Simulated scan of single mutants.
Amino acid sequence: MNDEALLRYSRQIMLDAIDIEGQERLLASHALVVGAGGLGSPVALYLAAAGVGCLTLADADEVELSNLQRQIAHAQADLGRNKAESARAAAQALNPTCRVTAVTTHLEGDRLATAVANCDLVVDCTDRFSSRYAINRACQEAGKPLVSGAAIRFSGQLAVFDPRAPDSPCYACLYPPGEAGRDDEELRCAENGVVAPLVGLIGSFQALEAVKLLSGAGQVHRGLSTFDGLRGEWRHFRVPRDPACPVCRQR
Rank of each mutant, 00 (worst) to 15 (best):
L68H: 02
R88I: 03
V247L: 12
D228A: 04
P42M: 03
N67W: 10
A91I: 12
A89H: 10
G51L: 04
D162Q: 14
I20L: 14
A50I: 10
P240G: 09
Y9H: 09
S225K: 02
V195D: 01
L158F: 08
G22H: 09
N2G: 08
L55N: 05
I72M: 04
A77I: 06
L158E: 00
A210V: 15
V100Q: 02
D19W: 12
F129V: 07
S215E: 14
G109H: 11
D242S: 13
A117S: 05
G35A: 04
C173V: 10
A5Y: 05
V123S: 02
G156P: 11
V211P: 02
A115L: 02
Q23H: 14
P163M: 15
A151F: 11
E233F: 03
D127M: 01
Q157N: 10
R81W: 07
S204N: 07
G216I: 09
C170V: 06
R111I: 12
Q76L: 09
L79A: 06
C170I: 14
I20Y: 12
Y171Q: 00
V52P: 09
Y9T: 10
R111W: 11
L7K: 08
R128A: 13
S41G: 08
V100G: 05
A217T: 05
A48N: 03
A159P: 11
A117Y: 03
Q206G: 02
D61K: 02
A244E: 05
E209W: 15
D183F: 12
I202P: 01
A58H: 13
A210Q: 07
E209F: 14
T126E: 12
D120E: 13
F161I: 13
D19R: 11
F205K: 00
D124L: 13
L27D: 10
F205C: 07
N2A: 04
G38L: 04
G51Q: 13
Y175F: 11
G216F: 12
I18P: 11
H106S: 02
A113Y: 00
L214Y: 11
A196W: 11
G218D: 10
D167A: 15
P176A: 01
S86M: 07
Q12G: 12
R164D: 08
L107W: 02
V239S: 06
E4T: 03
C139E: 08
L213G: 03
C125L: 14
G37I: 15
A196T: 03
E141H: 08
R111F: 11
R249C: 15
V147E: 09
A93D: 03
H236E: 13
V122I: 15
T105C: 00
D16E: 15
E209T: 11
R182A: 15
A48V: 13
P42G: 02
E191Q: 13
N82K: 00
L65W: 12
A49C: 06
S168M: 07
E24L: 05
R8F: 08
V34C: 06
W234P: 08
Y46N: 00
D19V: 02
L224C: 10
V239H: 06
Y9Q: 00
A84S: 03
F227A: 05
P42V: 02
T104L: 03
W234M: 09
R231H: 04
R137P: 00
I202G: 05
S29G: 09
G229P: 06
A50R: 04
R81Y: 07
